[in-house]
Write a protein that binds this DNA or RNA. Sequence first.
DNA 1: TCTTCCTATGCACCTCGTTGCATAGCAACG
DNA 2: CGTTGCTATGCAACGAGGTGCATAGGAAGA
Lengths: 185, 185
Amino acid sequence: MALEHAILVSLLEKPGSGYELARRFERSIGYFWTATHQQIYRVLKRMTSDGWVDVRDVQQYGRPDKKEYSVAGPGRDALGAWLQEATEPESVRHDLAVKVRGAAFGDPAALITEVERHRQAHTDRLAHYLTGEARDFGEPTAGGPLDAERELQHVVLRGGMAYERMMIAWLDDVLATLAGLDAGR
Amino acid sequence: MALEHAILVSLLEKPGSGYELARRFERSIGYFWTATHQQIYRVLKRMTSDGWVDVRDVQQYGRPDKKEYSVAGPGRDALGAWLQEATEPESVRHDLAVKVRGAAFGDPAALITEVERHRQAHTDRLAHYLTGEARDFGEPTAGGPLDAERELQHVVLRGGMAYERMMIAWLDDVLATLAGLDAGR
DNA sequence: TCTTCCTATGCACCTCGTTGCATAGCAACG
DNA sequence: CGTTGCTATGCAACGAGGTGCATAGGAAGA
């Protein structure tokens, strides 16, 4: 289970509440690891009782109070150990690939709309990444030594962009194939 | 849940037993949808009672008898309906991306071995795909009209190859970034 | 005042997925 | 004859993940 570790990384980058974590999992972190607020609250509870994180009640004005979590020593140790642990390459789940192979037994042309919908979603996400890259990494490192955190966030973002570009190109390939089947019958 | 649909597609391509399906999920299908034999047997049971598939006892000699499953009318209908249904783009789970961002808070150099291990796995898988492509799609369609099933299987395979190539290139990017951090401190 | 919306946390329930184990037929080998 | 290994099916239990719902404070606007 890597959700715990994803939370540790996010809290090391910046301490925050369960609610704030949930929103981070809708943006930056969520592009390579998804989680609902339910999962996050549940795991934070376990991590607290395991001593991986510390909690601090924070009073707020104009909005409900919150609990701010930050990484404790044992949590940092656990993350360090996990980093060197061998993890199996993630199991893939591409329902669109299932649909494409399934189209052979239905109407291939009927799948086109769905493929175009996915292509649009990937195009949007790529545009979002590019905006974020220009905002966060547009200028060279602002003096000082290499900032490891910044460099590593950037290389992960480049991975996300490479994935979206690959998907868009593949979906174009799929659309061309579907169109070819439609024309050829 | 798309496991049912993945099984339907696999059974339409070729009827078979739960055991045979489990082995297919370790190869071709398994590259974009994973499942253990437990899941498969459980889902086949439900699909049978829902009338999506038919069962046939097959006596075998030199090995235990088996149950051969094939797709029934309602199963084919369910697949057709699902193909046109809007499916959300699959939720991604890239533990390696979590590790890369986490490396900022540990020793970036310690991650290199793990990244190289993943790179090797993707290289191996790409080589496996290329072998399969040469074997199954090396020669142009053997006469007759365009074979939809074959074309669609090929485009899915091309997607798998594009994914592996993208991952290898990204992992090289990650390795260069990690090496740069190591040299620059 | 009433409704709507956002922040913030959490419970209950259900499904999906994984692990471990059990059973059984048959083949091959020492 | 016993062990090992492959084919073939399945149960039991657990943990992960997701959906729906509940609660509660406060802001903003009709």
